[in-house]
Simulated assay, not measured.
Amino acid sequence: MADLDLKALDKIIKNTLSAVEKSKTQIFEIYEAARNEMENVKKDVEKVKQETINVIFLVDELEKKERRARLRLMEVSRNFRVYKEEDIKDCYDEAKNLQIELAVAREQEQNLRRQRDELEIRLKQLKNTVEKAEGLVSQVGVVLGYLGNQMGGVVNQIESLQQSQIFGAKIIKAQEEERRRVAREIHDGPAQLMANVVFRAEVCERLIDIDIDRAKGELRDLREQVRGCLKETRKIIFDLRPMALDDLGLVPTLKRFLDSLKERANVHGEIRILGEEKRLDSHVEIGLFRVIQEALNNIEKHAKASSVKVIIEFRPGFVSAVVEDDGAGFNSAETAGSESFGLLGMRERMNLLNGQVTVSSEIGKGTKVSIKVPFK
């Protein structure tokens, strides 16, 4: 009877996790579709903007020609006795044709500007959809991990501690391999494309010699927007999988992250190492870095801190870390029952590594996150 109950429980757990995973997949498909549409609209915006610039050049050229034709017509009209009737007619026809061409070009310019504005509005809406879908995927992923840990704990009570550790390490390895793949794709695709667009914008800026202020203003705006996108793309790459973690290890990667935190949020970071620094197993370094990273992200978003201190201590058999800021703080006793997804994710990672994480804070006295992870 006990074996039958265990099988039924295992089936319920698998079905539940499968349903959540399916929801995550569906949200990700929405995200992918919206992102692809956003890229297509970006291309359309660039195409329309280039066409608008070409039409602006055409309008300026036609205005000059039309102005010269009118002056010529006025001259011929004043001296009609000097010119033949055929010459006068030719001048009149030329001026009339140029006026028609100019009117058509101006109408085309207005249509292109209107089309550009509509595409930019659509692009902004698609960007919001992509950001929301991406956030949902992340949140569902955290919930999935949390449910997997909580439900799996029921079955893990009959399993050995070694099996639990292997299972947790495999989960972290799978997650980080996926992060590595996405980071490589973003680096080879959007980041390179944005850099190329910046270069093209600079070339166009040097070539423009008609209506300089208006044309350069639009191109400068475009260039700054693309640079912002490039900067954000590189930040996403770092958040997904910092390459330095594999090559240099935990401490150098944290130093780089603190430098970027100072640049982004003007939060001064200090790191201290106690004991003999050493490389740890990959899954231990990854788990520890992610927890510290989440603590630093929370400081950036919520703490209103001016400085943060990170202390890493290497001891025989375990490594500990403390992340402490001088921010606004909060009443940790009042929020104990309403932990955020970020804190839940931190606890989840520590559970998989058989580690511990505690958060203590007081209003006006900052926040302290303490972490301890064993290793062999």
Rank of each mutant, 00 (worst) to 15 (best):
R78H: 14
L280M: 09
E339D: 08
S164P: 05
I172M: 07
G135I: 06
E285M: 01
E21F: 15
L62I: 02
R279K: 12
L250D: 00
R200G: 15
T129I: 11
R256T: 13
P190Y: 12
D326M: 06
D211Q: 14
A33P: 06
G152F: 06
T358E: 13
G152T: 02
M38H: 13
A34P: 08
D213R: 12
V130D: 06
V319T: 03
D188F: 09
S360I: 08
S260M: 06
I158L: 04
I100Y: 09
I13Y: 09
K96S: 13
V104W: 01
G189P: 04
A103S: 13
A321W: 01
R181E: 15
K65T: 07
K235H: 04
T358C: 10
H268Q: 13
R70P: 06
F28D: 11
R113C: 00
E86F: 08
L123G: 13
K309Q: 12
V48G: 01
Q150Y: 05
V323E: 02
S340F: 03
E46A: 11
N54Y: 08
K170E: 11
N266S: 12
Q175R: 11
E120R: 08
E177L: 15
Q165T: 06
D93W: 10
L123Q: 09
I312H: 02
E29M: 14
I299P: 03
L248V: 00
K89A: 13
I27Y: 05
D10K: 09
L136P: 01
R264H: 04
L344W: 03
A303F: 01
G342E: 00
F80H: 15
K255I: 14
D325F: 04
K47H: 08
R81C: 10
G345A: 05
L136C: 07
A105V: 11
S332C: 10
D247K: 08
K11H: 12
F199N: 15
Y146T: 01
Q163A: 08
F341A: 03
L126P: 09
N354S: 11
E270C: 14
L261D: 07
N354L: 04
A169G: 02
R214G: 12
L240E: 06
G345F: 00
I292F: 07
E178C: 11
N128F: 07
K173T: 14
I286K: 01
D213F: 10
N111K: 04
I271Y: 03
H268L: 14
G152V: 05
P190S: 14
V322C: 01
R214Y: 12
L248F: 05
